[in-house]
Design a protein around this nucleic acid. Sequence first.
DNA 1: ATCGTATATCGTACATATACGATAAGCAAG
DNA 2: CTTGCTTATCGTATATGTACGATATACGAT
Lengths: 109, 109
Amino acid sequence: MALSRNDEFPVKDLTLSKWCKALSHPARIAILRNLASRGECICGDLVLDLPLAQSTVSQHLKALKEAGLVQGQVDGPRSRYCINQKNFEKFIKAFGTFGNKLNKKLICE
Amino acid sequence: MALSRNDEFPVKDLTLSKWCKALSHPARIAILRNLASRGECICGDLVLDLPLAQSTVSQHLKALKEAGLVQGQVDGPRSRYCINQKNFEKFIKAFGTFGNKLNKKLICE
DNA sequence: ATCGTATATCGTACATATACGATAAGCAAG
DNA sequence: CTTGCTTATCGTATATGTACGATATACGAT
């Protein structure tokens, strides 16, 4: 795409867009729901629940990890994943701030 | 990307991911902030505020429109845009539901 | 009718995302 | 050490996203 102009946008917008991007695929939303309801689980559990190949699920997990929304730890031959609660809360908060600001403007002005 | 498996995911996940995708670029977040603070504005106003060419801004507006988050109406030679409040509220609500469910699980179980 | 302004769309280039199978790497068990 | 299981990564194919300039379209004004 030619050159990205991302460095010319406010950091807050970049941060929020990064997190939203992490949720911009239904598989990643399903993964987060799954992780939340199980507390934690291994990659193989997710593969059973999703209509995707193991390698694809692994890619989505990597994306969520890079966005900071999940964390993983090695457990023998497995990888055990869970939601990165701290960052997830930051995301929820940032989103809430964004939504509230916009709603306030929409209603009051 | 080979064939998409999107039709095999729950509708709720698809809906939320679609909206998140609309916010997955900083320019579109900036546009929404802009529209909220101005109430409404024309494409040219946004072009002045963003580090992007007119045609690119128009593309981002189209994306937001297709996601249902903004609406536009022709005004003489201009296009006047504003936030689609009804859908935006649906989005905020859907996101809140998602976030709350996950948080509840994270805290209580 | 012509000119100027505003915007959407087209064409294009390149980047990134999504999907899969195959393979590599790591560990447990025998 | 070999076997079996789990997962990450590689290679690849294709789709989508992002950016620009150029152009078409639509309207108001002169």
